[in-house]
Nucleic acid binder design. Structure first.
Lengths: 191, 191
DNA sequence: GTCTATAGTAAGATAGAC
DNA sequence: GTCTATCTTACTATAGAC
């Protein structure tokens, strides 16, 4: 057999992430994780001594980092509100593969993590996302209550369109959602 | 030990449904189903000879029946559009326990059922729901494209608000969604 | 119709060779 | 760093008593 080469951390994390996003925490068996990464069980334990829980934790960490870099930071930039929102939309389109991949925040919201470490992190991620979006809408002229309401509605709409896309085996709901998101967040002023 | 009494089918199905909605298909172990229903494993197999798959199938059947009775039928009534939508909203509030319970269509959309029996049924349920809602909006004066767009958006919004409510451990997103749903589906006419 | 007991399989996790 | 081999536990499912 050829000498095994160490798989890169980045590629490994991506493969693990794909599995958890696809089947959730409970559904992500070591067998699936092993097959997806090309590493045998024991090799996964070498990288992640605490096993599946650690893998899920690091997948969550990557999701948090991605959210910060590609969503929160652009939303907090000094660009015009329209530009900030468009930057977020472009990032989301890539992250969810146009609707083909589910959101880790939905798929990992398992009761397995009830009172566990992931529950609080998922809640914080949703909160930070909604709050950053609300600030943009405030900057665009919305009052505080309206801004928060529309921000939360937009995140719900995104999550729901991903649920529909998965349930209906069609990327159309998600693509439709993205296409109309800017217009819903920043409605034209009515004189 | 006292003589065991047969548990009613309706109550049994409700308990099973609660588990599947809570933890999804993969997470619903026989141990959890047994504990929730109060029936031992072997007793569950007496009622459901094909095991977990059959239980999930019957839970899905009950969800379909519920959707037909409490959502599709009211939406297809001869009442005014506002009344039909309000009837749906009342039913959803009860079915999802004000946001405390997840949607079986989301939680059972497992890749375990990819190309399996549930995938097609989930897709059909979403389609029927959206289509029935679109007809109401058409009756309220919306053109066909707008009606379908708003209907799909509303179902996505509902699903997403349930995702947010679960992820944030708060019923507020769902309650908020329901409170504003009628206004979003039937926006006031602008002269 | 429900139970105890158990079979058989797949799960998560570890030990030690290379 | 990856592997094969193995352990223990939990899982789905079945057999048979009451």
């Amino acid at each position: 057999m050829a000498r095994p080469v160490k798989i890169e951390d980045s590629a490994l994390h991506t493969k693990l992430s794909d599995v958890f996003r696809d089947v959730g925490y409970e559904g992500a068996s070591l067998a699936k994780l092993s097959e997806a990464t090309g590493l045998k069980r024991a090799s996964l334990y070498h990288r992640f001594p605490d096993g599946k829980e650690q893998m899920a934790g690091e997948v969550m960490s990557r999701a948090e980092a991605w959210l910060t870099e590609h969503v929160l930071t652009p939303l907090k930039s000094k660009d015009a509100p329209e530009a900030r929102i468009r930057a977020m939309i472009r990032a989301l389109d890539g992250f969810y593969s146009g609707g083909r991949q589910a959101c880790v925040l939905n798929m990992m919201s398992s009761p397995r993590e009830d009172r566990g470490p992931l529950a609080g992190r998922i809640r914080n991620a949703f909160r930070a996302w909604i709050e950053a979006l609300a600030v943009v809408l405030s900057d665009a002229g919305a009052d505080e209550h309206t801004a928060h309401f529309r921000a939360e509605r937009a995140v719900a709409l995104l999550q729901g369109s991903l649920v529909l896309s998965r349930g209906m085996s069609s990327t159309r709901p998600f693509r439709n959602c993205l296409a109309h998101l800017e217009g819903e967040l920043l409605p034209p002023l009515r004189p």
